[in-house]
Design a protein around this nucleic acid. Sequence first.
DNA 1: GCGATTTAGGTAACCGGTGTCAATCAGGTG
DNA 2: CACCTGATTGACACCGGTTACCTAAATCGC
Lengths: 338, 338
Amino acid sequence: MKKARDGKPTINDVARIAGVSKKTVSRVINRSPLLNEATREKVEAVIAELGYVPNPQARALALRRNFLIGLIHDNPNAQMVLGVQEGILSAIRDTEFALVVRPVNRRSLDMLDDVRAFLEQQRLFGVMLLPPISENDALAELCEDLGVTYVRMGSVRLDEDEHMVASNDREAVANAVGYLVERGHRRIGFVAGPEGFRSAAERALGYRDALEQAGLALDPAIMAEGSYTFETGIAAGEKLLSASTPPSAIFASNDEMAAGVLHAARTQGLSVPEDLSIVGFDDTAIAAHIWPPLTTVRWPIQAMAKAAAIKLIDPAQARKQPSHFLSDLIERASVRPA
Amino acid sequence: MKKARDGKPTINDVARIAGVSKKTVSRVINRSPLLNEATREKVEAVIAELGYVPNPQARALALRRNFLIGLIHDNPNAQMVLGVQEGILSAIRDTEFALVVRPVNRRSLDMLDDVRAFLEQQRLFGVMLLPPISENDALAELCEDLGVTYVRMGSVRLDEDEHMVASNDREAVANAVGYLVERGHRRIGFVAGPEGFRSAAERALGYRDALEQAGLALDPAIMAEGSYTFETGIAAGEKLLSASTPPSAIFASNDEMAAGVLHAARTQGLSVPEDLSIVGFDDTAIAAHIWPPLTTVRWPIQAMAKAAAIKLIDPAQARKQPSHFLSDLIERASVRPA
DNA sequence: GCGATTTAGGTAACCGGTGTCAATCAGGTG
DNA sequence: CACCTGATTGACACCGGTTACCTAAATCGC
């Protein structure tokens, strides 16, 4: 009689033992204000005694909403994804929400159908979209259509504040390049990210801004494009360093390419930072673990992810969350005055 | 009359429109064999027309089990965690399962309570435990008690085959050190991982095995311990290289420490691999992106995670999944014959 | 040709919560 | 003392599926 069969205690067990209706137990769980203090205590005692925990599936069914938030990403950068996961977790800690992850393949043709099937099947409360797929407007529309609230992370304002959290890559790069200018560099090379990535475009704009600000001319001979990989970084480095007037400093649009540039410089007998200064972007593990440690731009991934998650789950707090975040320049040892 | 209010179509809508009972629709969804072909087709047509997808929460409630599998980890290595996530995803793709992640803090005193609360609240179908916390037997017991099936990943046999998937770190390290011996190295240093980590202990045993096999004596002067971080790798490298007879090769128990050793060597004016050969473990991104690229041991994380996930969700396939996996030595450029 | 099976499908209860609305009870009012 | 008001609480239907059980028609053996 103490409790049903084998399973966990249910609201019915609590109600029976406490001698109240299940609705009253429900009120206790949900902290309903119109409830006698004595009753509340009595029920809470039974809950504690039984170790009762409400069944989330039943709750989800009755409330017609669940407590799962999804993270959809297609990301080459493990550190970033994990940083986001931790940011989200810090927002949902001590709530009943849980985090469901769903890696997808950006290049796959049926990526959209894939995501649609996922959303329809799981009926998540909301989802977070990570770059680069967060830049895909069709995906955001899909969420809208399916009635799934979403928040996009990006390197620039992608959507209404309510649906977005962004770093300001353009400004961050402009600052980083400006930092090189301040140290006397006049010939600063640039390694761009792949075409089609919004972040790559923003970073390129930041580079232009800084040169313009410093009164320096753009020179295609010391600009190259890579695809955010170590190998393309090497190739870009080789190109830039073999220019007739090679640069004294190079800004690479991410750390992996910066590591590639470093590698290319070393291969050509140059030492860093004596002969060449290098600045990267992202502050991944690589940045701190290569030699010399890389001066780079760190964007506050965790804080952004946390803010995004709060926007998703807590309407009361949502408006108070910032939508824009500033990145910091992390000074290490790969830069020296010209 | 076509369908209820605003929401998605439900099984009732399908039943009404198809002119059958909801139970029959349920049979169609669950591919019940005792069912007339014509009826099945009729119902399937309505399902397709309405775009009906069963509500997972209702299903979970009725079935008394859900389709969420959890990944519990406390991991310093982003690449590994992400590799595991992808392995799991490849196993659950095209099933109705989804992946819930839950980072925890190993050092936190209430880690166990934290996990307990998580499991009780979410009522997951099963969980996967990643190293290093997978080595915690109390955690496995907790899962057992709570009736949550689990699978542990580890560097050695931790549990019954049913609950475990393991690499063989001891053998992998013995092979890697043997590889150095084959290349004529007779004085091989070792950087151990932190005490308390099973993987660290296994790797140390592999080192001993290899030396014994080669008839070489253990020399504490060229052995050090680190905590799997770059900085402790530097310290270990400094110690080993300042031995009265320094080693001609060093095996480090993970790539970060290997990168630290590399750094220490460089600081002392040694070149790698000319003056010192280095081998790491894990094959993280760092290994390929430092200079020289690091020869290291790669363990098949994704395959292991996939096998583990299948053990969790598919009892029919579970027995056929391997429980032990072999690691490969990835030859790069940080080793040269003595 | 008739009872015994088999087959196809329906009915009602239930999984464990929540919403709605009415019932009960105490105290205050005229 | 009858009536009204606000605070508590319970009864009951419902969320969208599934299980257990039952019925009716079709098939079968002899």
